[in-house]
Structures are given as structure tokens and as C-alpha cells.
Simulated assay, not measured.
Amino acid sequence: MTSESTSPALDVDKLARYLQQHVPGFHGPVQATKFAGGQSNPTFLLDTPGGRYVLRRQPPGQLLKSAHAVDREFRVLSALGQTPVPVARAWHLCEDREVIGSMFYLMSYEEGRIFWNPALPEIDRDARRDYYASIVTTLAALHDVDVDAAGLSDYGRPGNYFQRQIELWTRQYRAAETEQIGPMEALIEWLPAHCPADTQRPSLVHGDFRIDNLIFTNDAPRVRAVLDWELSTLGNPLADLAYFCMCLRLPSTGDITGLRDQDRSTLGIPEEEEMVAQYCELRGLPGIANWNFYLAFSFFRLASIAQGVKARALQGNASNASALEVGGMVEPLASLAVELIA
């Protein structure tokens, strides 16, 4: 993990006393540094004489009932620690809001590299395909987790996953709507009418599986830890695969960076068909029907999220200076989805 900025937001002395009582081997003093970025759950690097840890907390103040559920994140990390899925070690969940002002959990610090650009400019061309192969292998391993054996059989709601998601993100979009956008209206009509039936057992779904939510080892194309489980649930695993593959179709400029119009062969990045084929082989799938639906839904969901960012920016409540730029992506994202269903 990288990109930290100093923050005085934690009472580190009180925190150190608490963790010394509840985490084996933990002892202060503690130096806390907030990770930069737009995480909805503030995340801190803790430096101690005995090593480094990561603390992830709910933001202080009043919260929506189901938002910022760091206890769910802790639960899924704890469960995955016994599986082949690479995650940080979950050390402790504190539900006592008196300690630092909100619920938080402590996990291991995983040394490694995070890449923000899917073109992987930091990596030699000949190695980039191996990095993508590692990503797909990690995703397949996640979706192969036996949720019953992992104690996660009640981690999501029953019923058609995509049907619920379409309803959710349509509501979210309507609540944040600032103007009528033709491509979004087309998607709101088309998606529920073409939603495939869920015919397979629900898998654990990450919900935000993209390259900058992965830590790679420093010296090899291997995923060391999957980060940010805030949106995880049980559902259709193809949502994660399509969401990740969306990076191949997103514009190469702007706040949300992708690989559209770039020569992926020259870059050494595999094509979508190759990644989908690798995923299907790893999971024993004959192929994927309705692939364009899953991609279109991914663009629709991201557009709805961007609309929420735009609405908050116009209200003066946005969390970073690029919020209006993100908000400007709503129509382009929806148009990319409409291209897939035309």
C-alpha cells in the first residue's frame, strides 16, 4: 500500500492502549498516517515498534444504516483467510465506538505494489500479460470459494442478483438525477427487460474488482492481497468479471482511466476474449452467454455512481476536487453501454 498523507484524526495513545489489550504482540507507541484517496471508509497505516498494521474505520458522525459496514469487511477477510484467495490478515474488530469515535478493524499491512493505470506503464511489456493472468486467476479463486464452508452462506440476499442490482442503481440514479440523459433512460428500460435468469449457485462477489484494488508482490506478477471489500456480497460472479473487463473499454483519458482506443497488442495487454477464456477454463465453464448484458450493466452501475458524485459536487458535498469531472462521465459511460445493446 502506498500514497499516504499525515493525519491527526486518531487519538493514537488511546488507540494503542486498546490494541495492546486486544491484539497479541501489539505494543506502542503508534504513529498513524492516513492513506490518500477517496475511500469512503478512512484507512490508516499504523507504524509500531513491532511492525506495521492497517486500520480501517467508519467515518465519524451519522451514517446510513447499511453504509460503511466495516464489520462486514472484517467478516469476509476473516473467512477468506482460510482459502486460496489472497487477503490481508484480519486481526481485530472493535465495535466500541468510544475508542476512536467509530467502529474499526485492524488488519495486516501487506507490502507490495499498487497500479493505478491498467496499461501498467511501470511494468516491462513482456511481463504485463502475466500480471493480467494473475488477476484473472485471483478472481476465479474468489468465485470458487465454498461460501458454506467459509461460513458466508448468509452474506447476501436470495433472489436474482442482477434484478436487485438494476433496481438498486436505478433508485440511486433517480435520487441523484440532475437532468435527463437519453442513454441512461434507454438502459433503465432495456436492462430489466433483458436480465438473464440466475441459474447457478451464488458466489462471493467483490463488487469493486479493479486493478487499483489489488496489491501485487514487489518482485513477481502475483496478487498478494485483494483490497476494499466494502461492496462484497453473494451474487452472480459474472458481475465481477464484466466490471474488471470494463477497463478495456473505458477511455484512456479522464478521471476513470481505461484502455479504449489503445493498441493492446503493442502494450502487451491481453484482449477481452483471452481473459474471458482463461476465466472460463479455470472455473470449468463452457462459455458465457449474454456477455454484452453483463458489460452494459457494469457501465450503467458506474454511470449511476458517477451521477451520485456529480450531485454531491453540485451540492458542495463532494469529497475531492475531481468530483465534477467524474460527474461528467455519466453520459459517455451510458453511451458505451448503449453501444453494446444496440
Rank of each mutant, 00 (worst) to 15 (best):
V330Q: 04
I341H: 12
D71H: 12
G258Y: 09
A140M: 03
V30R: 06
D255I: 13
I123C: 01
L336K: 11
M184H: 04
E271M: 12
P84T: 06
D263H: 09
Y243E: 05
R164V: 06
V330G: 04
R97M: 11
L214R: 05
E167G: 10
D198S: 15
A239W: 04
A141T: 11
R89D: 11
L231G: 03
L336A: 13
T48Y: 06
L139R: 01
D261N: 14
T83H: 05
S319G: 14
G81C: 02
G235S: 03
L314S: 11
A67K: 10
Y53D: 03
L77M: 07
G327E: 04
G38R: 07
L285I: 04
H206P: 00
E4I: 15
P183Y: 09
G254E: 05
G235C: 03
N236E: 14
N290P: 01
V85G: 01
R17M: 12
R52E: 10
A306Q: 03
T138S: 04
E331K: 06
L106E: 11
L285H: 07
P196W: 10
G112T: 01
A141W: 03
P158V: 12
Y173Q: 00
P202H: 10
F209W: 05
A69P: 01
P237E: 09
W291S: 09
R128W: 06
R17E: 14
G284Q: 08
R89W: 02
G50D: 12
S78K: 14
E325H: 11
Y109M: 06
T43S: 10
F104E: 02
T138E: 01
L45E: 04
R283C: 12
I166H: 05
Y131F: 08
E273D: 15
I181M: 06
N236V: 05
E73F: 03
V326Y: 08
P251F: 10
A321V: 14
D208I: 00
C94Q: 14
T6F: 14
I256T: 13
R89G: 13
C195Q: 14
E179K: 13
E189R: 15
G101L: 09
A318S: 10
E179D: 11
Y155N: 10
V309D: 00
G37S: 07
Q165W: 10
N160W: 06
L248W: 07
L324Q: 12
E274Q: 13
P332E: 09
F293N: 05
H22Q: 13
M329S: 12
R72S: 04
Q39V: 04
A16K: 10
R57V: 03
T199A: 12
L340F: 05
I215W: 01
F293Q: 02
E274K: 11
T6E: 15
I269M: 00
R224C: 09
P121S: 04
E281S: 14
Q315A: 15
C94Y: 09
D124K: 12
A313T: 02
F162Y: 12
V330S: 02
A133D: 07
R171G: 13
L64A: 11
A197H: 11
P84Y: 09
